[in-house]
């Protein structure tokens, strides 16, 4: 009986761990760069310089993510909040939308890593 219980418990644990790993898994092959290009570059530019293809008719210039001084003045928590909850959440323009309906936390963190690369490590 004990051995049956042990097998059942082990099986349940295995199923639970598998479910958790599947839930936490990001989309295969997705990178901070690909997410940045899809969701951010429209306004912030394919090179992150703030001259995106949508930047011409809006009232507030999108942030230049290659400006190391500006970007270093912001913590990762600031960036996370701005991306997830939008510009208004950090007292910036409402033209920066909230991406909480499109990106999960893991994906936002991948974008932040990419931002650190393009602002301060010379990466594109």
């Amino acid at each position: 009986m004990n051995s049956v219980n042990r097998i059942t418990s082990f099986f349940l644990l295995a199923v639970t761990l598998y479910s958790l790993s599947v839930t936490a898994q990001a989309e295969s092959g997705i990178t901070g760069k690909s997410l940045y290009q899809a969701y951010c570059s429209q306004c912030h530019g394919l090179y992150g310089d703030g001259f995106g293809v949508n930047s011409y008719d809006i009232d507030v210039a999108p942030r230049d993510h290659t400006d190391a001084g500006e970007m270093n003045a912001r913590t990762n928590e600031d960036l996370f909040k701005a991306i997830k909850f939008g510009g208004k959440s950090v007292n910036k323009s409402p033209l920066m939308p909230n991406w909480d309906g499109n990106l999960d936390d893991q994906e936002i963190n991948l974008i932040i890593k990419h931002l650190r690369k393009i602002c301060c490590e010379g990466g594109q």
Binding site: Q42, C43, V53, N54, D57, I58, D59, S93, P94, L95, M96, P97
Partner: peptide, 20 residues
């Protein structure tokens, strides 16, 4: 254009607004 920011990606008149 300003409060909802739709104009960043969409045009509300020919030749004005976002293009994606």
């Amino acid at each position: 254009r300003k409060f909802k920011g739709c104009v960043a990606c969409h045009r509300d008149e020919e030749g004005f607004g976002g293009v994606t």
